[in-house]
Design a protein around this nucleic acid. Structure first.
Length: 490
RNA sequence: CGGGGUGUAGCGUAGCCCGGUAUCGCGCCACAUUUGGGAUGUGGAGGUCGUAGGUUCGAAUCCUGCCACCCCGACCA
């Protein structure tokens, strides 16, 4: 059954619909572009949440929650910020419905809000409005707060997981006494994201900074991690912003320093969203479905019994019970799929579709031989191994799979990372194999925009590890002292 | 918001040009045989043909309006 589940993103929506996660678009146009995350998909998001949340706590952050509704006036306080989000806001104007007399429910025009409320597209404004009341002295700083929430951005065109009208995310908002400390925080959280992407999601990322043109609305500097999908397109997987004193000035947030001076607070914000699920899927999946790295998989091992009689089943149950206990001791999550409504072959295919890293099949034959069949999702290989020491064998195999998935993605990226020195070469690579293109750029927004118009490629980032190197811009021939990364992006 | 396309059972579709109450596959239900890679056979259930109107003895089919969705573009995590 080929569903055309390949690296091409266009194919994924079909796959979601049938198998993992469904975008249930309501008939009402008002909720177009939203997604329903089905239980198995949500379990993956929960794993991401749990792991990230732990990292945030370890780095000194606390969770809090701020309102969904933001008074319109808050938005107009930071000029660049309004401009960036103005065209994609959902606005609440009324608070009551009524029966119009014919049985139709209509908006009660008399219940018009004096000031409209914006459904948050991001929470900087309402949070900084709140911080004003929390901060007086340098002793109140830093404030290291994170929020898990949903946000709404009325995009003209949506795309499952990558750009939905409503999405789930976390947004960290920190306040600091000094510029240096805020910049350090921005970089530290970028590292948290990069480490998570590479070690947990097994998706290699480039750490870098955005150009002025691609920067977050209201930020002085935007750091990002950029991942490469199997179709050669880049995906921004997370961002960390140094906001300077912009929001402190807009919302009049000042503190008295050790020296007794009144100063504006320094800010950062950083976030990752359910887009990470899209990244995960597009980075690793194959024609058989999802491929989950073991460290993220909600179910790491699935056990499928193969039996004809009740006696056989009972014998297998006994073995599986013991194995399950041993695996749980090693903190490995197990699912025993002993449904009698589906046949083994069906179950094999179904769990492969869901990306479970390791499958154990055990039948009467195995019980006689003291063996099981061990299959791995990443390589689609299987082998017969001894029941003795099986828990240990599986634990090792999970590590191997984690490493292998990462290596595979890394090899792909390495082979789709090209240095070019001319615009012709640039266009040739872009139209050919795609991927990241490293080249010189003159540093102007104008050149960036013209390249985008002509080729659709954008500057994904200026890599943090870019070395100083004299060269000339591939487009204008003007001097440049470091390479930047271009790619077509989602 | 511009350009293109599509709406028929839970999903995917045929029928439309040339009007006569809807085809096929998957899935679902029952029974039997099966069970180490998505089983097979037999029987069965399931339809406002996107929606409103028009033409007609008769509309999935022809005409008009509306709605929704998909793709491409501008915009974006």
């Amino acid at each position: 059954m080929s569903k055309g589940i390949t690296s091409r993103a266009e194919d994924y929506s079909q796959w979601y619909n049938e198998l993992v996660i469904k975008a249930d678009l309501a008939e009402n146009s008002a909720v177009r572009g939203c997604m329903v995350i089905k239980p198995y998909g949500y379990a993956i998001w929960e794993r991401m949440q749990a792991i990230l949340d732990k990292r945030f706590k370890e780095t000194g952050h606390s969770n809090a929650y701020f309102p969904l509704f933001i008074p319109k006036s808050f938005f107009s306080k930071e000029a660049a910020h309004v401009e960036g989000f103005a065209t994609e806001c959902a606005v609440v104007t009324h608070y009551r419905l009524k029966n119009d007399g014919t049985g139709k429910i209509v908006v009660d025009e008399e219940a018009k809000l004096e000031e409209e409320l914006i459904v948050r597209p991001t929470s900087e404004t309402i949070i900084w409005n709140t911080y004003r009341g929390w901060i007086e002295s340098y002793r109140d700083l830093p404030i290291l707060v994170n929020q898990w929430a949903n946000v709404v951005r009325w995009e003209m065109r949506t795309r499952l997981f990558l750009r939905t009208a409503e999405f789930l995310w976390q947004e960290g908002h920190t306040a600091h006494a000094t510029k240096e400390e805020a910049i350090a925080e921005t970089e530290r959280m970028l590292d948290v994201y990069a480490e998570f992407a590479e070690n947990i999601l097994a998706v290699p990322v480039v750490r870098g900074r955005k150009t002025e043109n691609e920067r977050f609305a209201g930020a002085l500097d935007t750091y990002c991690i950029e991942a490469l999908m199997q179709d050669g397109k880049a995906l921004q997987a997370g961002t960390s912003h140094f906001l300077g004193q912009n929001f402190a000035k807009a919302f009049d947030v000042k503190f008295t320093s050790k020296e007794g001076k009144l100063e504006h607070v320094w800010a950062t914000s950083w976030g990752v969203s359910t887009r990470l699920m899209g990244a995960l899927i597009m980075a690793h999946s194959d024609d058989q479905g999802l491929v989950l790295p073991p460290k993220l998989a909600p179910i790491q091992v699935v056990i499928v019994p193969i039996f004809k009689t009740e006696e056989e089943k009972a014998q297998i149950d006994g073995f599986v019970n013991q194995l399950t206990n041993e695996l749980k001791v090693k903190d490995i999550s197990v699912k025993y799929d002993d449904r009698d409504t589906q046949r083994p072959g069906f179950k094999f295919a179904e769990w492969e579709l869901k990306g479970v890293p390791v499958r154990v099949a055990v039948g009467a034959r195995d019980m006689q031989n003291g063996t099981v069949e061990l299959a791995r999702r990443d390589t689609q290989t299987k082998e017969t191994v001894a029941q003795d020491g099986l828990a240990g064998t599986i634990a090792q195999l999970l590590d191997t799979i984690q490493e292998n998935i990462y290596q595979k993605a890394l090899n792909f990226r390495t082979s789709h990372f090209t240095e070019v020195n001319s615009y012709d070469e640039f266009k040739e690579v872009l139209e050919g194999k795609g991927g990241f293109i490293s080249c010189h750029w003159d540093g102007t927004t104008e050149t960036e925009k013209r390249v985008k118009e002509e080729t659709k490629a954008t500057i994904r980032c200026i890599p943090l590890d870019a070395k100083e190197e004299e060269g000339v811009c591939i487009f204008t021939g003007k001097p440049s002292n470091r390479r930047v990364l271009f790619a077509k992006a989602y």
